[in-house]
Computed example of a mutant assay.
Amino acid sequence: MSFALRGVSVRHSSSAAASPAALSDLTLAISQGEQLALIGPSGAGKTTLLHALACANRPHAGEFRAFGIDPWAMGNASRRALRARLFLAPQTPPLPPRQRVVTAVLAGRLPQWTLWQAFASLLKPADARAAWDALSRFNLQDKLYMRVDRLSGGERQRCSMARLLVSQAQAFLVDEPLSALDPALAAHTLSVLQQEAAARNATLVCSLHQVELARACFPRIVGVRAGRIVFDAPREAVTDAMIDTLYQHAARDAVAPASEQAGDEGAMPLITRCF
């Protein structure tokens, strides 16, 4: 089992103790190697849930296990080691603008490197071939030695996904990886992520605003609204009525938490060719 949540509630670290929880009473189990899409309106709590799974947001109620372990019952060093088995890819990749792409991609190995190895790789990339191979899967190999600030928004998103490929993570927690991509690039990027997850039996949890893409490509879909799970079902069981209910009255139900990203792109046309 990759993740198990029972009655989990989460507040943002900056919130007052009396403020409403960003996630409320969530119960969810995700098996190792499973591929799951999170959908729901902006402010629903999808980003907060991904951060909780990544052991970045500590629940204030309920029980949480990652790989069968309670990360918040561990010391800091042990928790860092556990986090090395997880890869959290935010919607806006934290790529230093003046850094070369090769260095930004190889940062996916930082959890496994010593401080000296990390410093040495800044001066001379430790494994430029691995970075080139990862970038080539997203048709970005020609950007290997370019500065990050010369990339477009979509190229930065795919660079972040290349970073994921060079990591040794056993769970990919990916937040809106397609928001800056056109439909063809989005389909290709998602296919690469799913193929990589399947090849290493890694768990893939991906939040998406492209509902039809989620329904076409993921075997399991979890609908989240106002910090709660509205449904958790195989894609064959997810109906148009369930989708309508999920997004109905969204503006009334939720105010976007600080960790949720703005700038929704809207649903893309149905893409039938998925991994």
Rank of each mutant, 00 (worst) to 15 (best):
P269G: 14
D70A: 11
Q168H: 14
S13L: 13
L28A: 03
F231A: 08
Q32I: 02
V192D: 07
A54Y: 10
R200F: 10
A258K: 09
D182W: 11
S24K: 14
R6M: 08
G75Q: 07
A118F: 03
K124W: 13
H60N: 12
S31P: 05
I39A: 10
P111H: 08
L28N: 01
A37G: 07
E212T: 01
D70P: 06
A256H: 02
R58G: 04
Y247G: 03
A162T: 00
T47Q: 07
E63G: 06
Q248H: 14
R137E: 15
P97S: 05
R85Y: 09
A61K: 12
L122F: 12
A54Q: 07
D240K: 13
A130W: 09
A44W: 05
T203V: 08
C206I: 04
R158D: 03
P20E: 11
G40S: 07
I221Q: 10
Q99M: 15
R156D: 03
Q170D: 14
L208P: 02
L88T: 00
L181P: 02
Y145M: 04
M1V: 10
V101N: 07
R156W: 09
G227E: 05
L115R: 15
A202C: 12
S179W: 00
R137K: 13
R225D: 13
R80G: 06
V105Q: 09
R156Q: 15
P59M: 12
A16T: 02
Q194Y: 10
G45N: 08
V174H: 02
L88K: 04
I30D: 05
K124R: 15
A56C: 10
A184F: 11
R225C: 14
I69V: 15
A4G: 07
C55D: 08
A18S: 15
D175E: 10
A267T: 01
P177L: 04
L50H: 04
A187L: 10
M1D: 12
L190D: 08
A18W: 11
T272V: 11
L110A: 13
L82P: 03
L110E: 03
A126R: 13
L165S: 06
R156S: 08
V102F: 11
R220P: 06
Q117K: 09
A107Q: 14
A162W: 05
V211C: 10
A44N: 03
L26A: 06
R129Y: 04
I30G: 06
E34K: 09
W132H: 15
L208H: 03
R225W: 03
A61G: 11
I271F: 08
R11A: 13
N201T: 03
Y145G: 00
L23Y: 08
D127C: 08
F138T: 00
Y145L: 04
L36V: 14
L86A: 04
A250E: 02
L26R: 05
R79V: 01
L26S: 05
L140E: 01
S136M: 03
L53S: 09
V105S: 06
S259D: 14
G263P: 00
A104F: 04
S160E: 11
E212M: 11
P177Y: 05
S179D: 00
G7Y: 05
R129Q: 15
I221G: 08
T114W: 13
D240G: 14
R85F: 08
P96K: 01
H51K: 15
P96N: 01
P234V: 01
V238S: 07
M161A: 09
H209W: 06
